[in-house]
Nucleic acid binder design. Structure first.
Lengths: 334, 334
DNA sequence: TTGTATGCGTTATCAA
DNA sequence: TTGATAACGCATACAA
């Protein structure tokens, strides 16, 4: 067993109360006593049992984070943002990411209840009703990239609509009239919003509104790669494509390469997310920058505010920004 | 406040002991009582306070995980492996990743002590001495990708030497005689091991052992990209390059593209890691596959064994495997 | 300035 | 089959 506060007290020949006082912001303790206690604690290699502290304090200073299977870069950056803010205020992250089924996620949430002060969930096809009777009222929750339907949970999302609109607008400005869309699936919140931005831009700029231009993907590289063949079979062939995320866009670039084609000449391509690789492929990928680390940071900020009762649930949007590189036909930004 | 076991007991008109019995694998409780308790618990939305449970049980079922700033894919996959195994045995992950300084890491470890049952650390330039007096003897630790120096901590690493050897061997078999190395920096354990594999293969195959062929990188894409200029200035120019990780290798491919050159004709390139993107760049990247998710899984398996006192610290190596794609001049594997 | 005693929510031991 | 109660390790209200 590790040493307890009682052991330290015995060794320093004082009471546990005094030890506790010394170890925490020390109230009024005589200097000599303090030194005695510190020495005893060090010699025993003592560190407080955080579990006991948590029980006593009625808070765990831990935050539960559920991120589903997602692109590695996205996952890493969001986590980094969360971690930065959490650490800055003395909180810890309990993460869980490998779950696809709803009942798995439910089990994870259950097991987190009663051990975290708050919850951050990124769960694209989340039903609010489902959460409603799973999570007790007392537990603050921040929902990422999801509908802002209920008043109970805080939500935070990218400005998907405007970002997608800007992407398609940019392709229109390049002179394209037949712009295809590669979606991320009908269920996914981000994917739906991006599609609506695409449609709005298609309408506003009088582009070809052929429904067969909307191809269904699933946010994976492989679905991007596979889409190339479909695109080539469309008549007339689209001259540009907006892919709902970068993974698919990179898959498309790969698929073009395999077919002996290349962006932007054979097909102008714009993605969404601006993952680090977008810089490094050839041609480099024009894309909509989504501030992933900032998403993590803001989410944690808001959650901690809710935990401390400094705020009530709100709904926020994070601005996106088009980054022009080579795959649309621009020369890359400096 | 959330409901406690006492509230449930009151509502069901039984003692807390009975409630506890019903909620845990229920000993011998009368069926009617059991139903009464379950009903009361449900109506109160009760779930046990895990902190109190942990205090009582003297274990937290939580594992601390420290991963420094690293490539997103690597981070994501290792984490996934850890999470899978942890969840399978009812454990939780407390992660921390955004720390570069030694004192930051120290602070994080300190704050984890007394709240986790074990620790998994991936910390390339770790000093064992440093850890030695930071971590109490009673706390099991698994070290990832580091020296196997001490008997106290378990270690787990990729077979860096053999992997690098195989990469250079393959380039030699392609007929290259002047093979450059792009290192990951002198401090990094993985980088040093991979360099030693490179050197061994250079010696065994009688390749050009010119020290100026060893270029210093830092595992970032940007350092790969920047290396291209150095490579071009070498005389005679190397015809092949082994990059100590995929990020740098992708940076090199990008740098070549910017210079109007291309792999494998102008420079054959082999990487290390086999991150998902290696598949999807053009040309696709020949690389040494490092089983990242398996690293996570094995690490967690071993840690839990140590926690349960089923094992004593050992030192294991995970095999790597060369994956032939286009950047070395092969046609890609199916 | 220091010590004593109580309670945080749970589980397990002992009695009934 | 059930209930009362003692721990688990800590922080604090109150007493000294």
């Amino acid at each position: 067993m590790d040493a307890t506060i009682q052991d330290v007290a015995d060794r320093a020949d004082v009471s546990v109360a005094t030890v506790s006082r010394v170890l925490n912001g020390s109230d009024r303790v005589r200097e000599a006593t303090k030194e005695e206690v510190v020495k005893a604690a060090r010699s025993l290699g003592y560190h407080p049992n955080e579990t006991a502290r948590n029980l006593r304090a009625q808070e765990t200073r831990m935050v539960g984070v559920l991120l589903p299977n997602m692109h590695g870069e996205f996952f890493a950056q969001v986590t980094r943002g969360l971690d930065r803010k959490a650490r800055a205020s003395g909180h810890h992250l309990m993460v869980s990411n490998s779950h696809t089924q709803e009942d798995e996620a439910k089990a994870v949430i259950q097991s987190l209840l009663g051990r975290v002060d708050g919850l951050i969930l990124l769960w694209p096809r989340l039903s609010h009703d489902f959460l409603d009777d799973l999570v007790p009222d007392s537990l603050p929750v921040v929902l990422l990239n999801t509908d802002r339907s209920g008043p109970r949970f805080e939500t935070l999302a990218f400005d998907n609509h405007d970002g997608a609109y800007a992407a398609v607008e940019h392709l229109a400005e390049h002179g394209h009239e037949r712009v295809a869309l590669l979606t991320g699936g009908p269920q996914n919140y981000d994917a739906r919003e991006r599609r609506s931005g695409y449609r709005a831009a298609v309408a506003d700029y009088g582009l070809d509104a052929d429904p067969s231009l909307e191809l269904e993907g699933d946010f994976t590289r492989e679905s991007g790669r596979a889409a190339v063949e479909q695109i080539r079979s469309l008549t007339p062939r689209p001259t540009a494509l907006f892919a709902s995320n970068d993974s698919m866009a990179l898959g498309v670039l790969r698929g073009l390469h395999e077919a002996g084609l290349e962006a932007p000449d054979d097909l102008a391509v714009v993605g969404f997310d601006d993952i680090p690789m977008a810089h490094y492929v050839a041609p480099s990928l024009t894309t909509v920058h989504a501030p992933m680390q900032e998403l993590g940071e803001r989410a944690m900020e808001r959650l901690l505010a809710l935990v401390q009762d400094d705020a009530s649930p709100a709904h926020q949007t994070l601005h996106t920004r088009l980054v022009r590189r080579e795959s649309c036909g621009c020369s890359p930004e400096p």
